[in-house]
Design a protein around this nucleic acid. Structure first.
Length: 283
DNA sequence: AACTACTACAACCGCTGCTAG
DNA sequence: ACTAGCAGCGGTTGTAGTAGT
């Protein structure tokens, strides 16, 4: 199905926005609201594509944007959310007030990716880099024939009260092709779970409720770190066909607190919780 | 000072999902 | 059910700024 271009390209400016264009856009939106982006450029006296106006407003001109460097807390939150959601930048941005999807995407590609790699973590799979080959080989044998996964994210502490995120990811496959994961590019990959072989043939409901520690007053740094660790490639002892519901606090107490994803240096995991295949488990 | 390499990020492109007709 | 138009999303590119030589 062919589509006409979103705007008349011959009469639209491209490239960097001038201060005058910015001011026109700001003035128009202040007076009229965001409304219809397609008709906005003409109404605002801008020779720009509506799409371009929208992007400029959302990513740069919006008054509620938080400019400046990302904090360590934001870093960790982005990593956690990316682990859960993959490259769903707009969803991740929805959880970071004042940050845009574009900003987070750029920050991920220029900072966090490098940071994780330097600490031996694959930024796409969030697994230790040196375990990737082992896991790849193991997965073909351990992925169950039918798996139903539900992830429910309940951000109880979220200030903007956005709706919960529910992910339903049904995999019906005799061998999920792990080689499709491309760790070297920005290509979107599924967050991967490692399911113990004993759950084969079982319907598993992995319903997780996560309370992100936006207010850290009552949370120690160890607990804060643990709330990330529970999403590490850990294979908790699942009971077949038993739904799992866990809050972050409960999981935080269950998961090994040793693995610091390299943020604080040293080994990633204690000897107790890393087994010979490179998987992580509770200890 | 001049050049090169690298980094950060703004902006663009192409696609998808939703919706109205 | 189908088509077309729109907003929005994610990947990629272009370029200004900075660091290193």
């Amino acid at each position: 199905m062919g589509r006409s271009p979103c705007c008349e390209k011959a009469h639209t400016n491209k490239g960097a926005w001038t201060k005058e264009e910015d001011q026109r856009l700001i003035n128009y939106i202040r007076a009229n609201g965001e409304g219809c982006w397609r008709s906005l450029p003409k109404a605002a006296g801008l020779q720009r594509c509506g799409k371009s106006c929208r992007l400029r407003w959302i990513n740069y001109l919006r008054p509620d944007l938080k400019r400046g460097n990302f904090t360590e807390e934001e870093d960790e939150l982005i990593i956690k959310l990316h682990r859960l959601l993959g490259n769903k930048w707009s969803v991740i941005a929805g959880r970071l007030p004042g940050r845009t999807d574009n900003e987070i995407k750029n920050y991920w590609n220029t900072h966090i990716k490098r940071k994780l790699i330097s600490h031996g973590i694959d930024p796409q799979t969030h697994r230790p880099l040196n375990a990737a080959s082992v896991i790849s080989a193991t997965n073909s044998a351990t992925i169950p024939t039918t798996t139903t996964k539900n992830i429910s994210m309940d951000f109880k502490n979220n200030v903007d009260q956005k709706p919960n995120i529910i992910i339903n990811n049904n995999v019906t496959s005799s061998s999920y092709d792990e080689t499709k994961c491309n760790s070297g590019t920005t290509e979107e990959t599924k967050p991967v779970e490692i399911i113990p072989q004993k759950t084969s043939q079982a319907m598993i409901n992995l319903e997780l409720s996560i309370g992100l520690p936006l207010h850290n007053d009552h949370i120690s740094s160890a607990e804060s770190t643990a709330s990330y660790n529970f999403l590490a490639p850990v294979a908790p002892p699942l009971t077949a066909a038993v739904p799992i519901t866990a809050t972050a606090e409960v999981v935080a107490k269950t998961v090994c607190l040793c693995w610091q994803i390299g943020f604080q240096g040293g080994d990633q995991c204690c000897a107790k919780c890393k087994n010979t295949t490179g998987f992580y488990r509770f200890c």
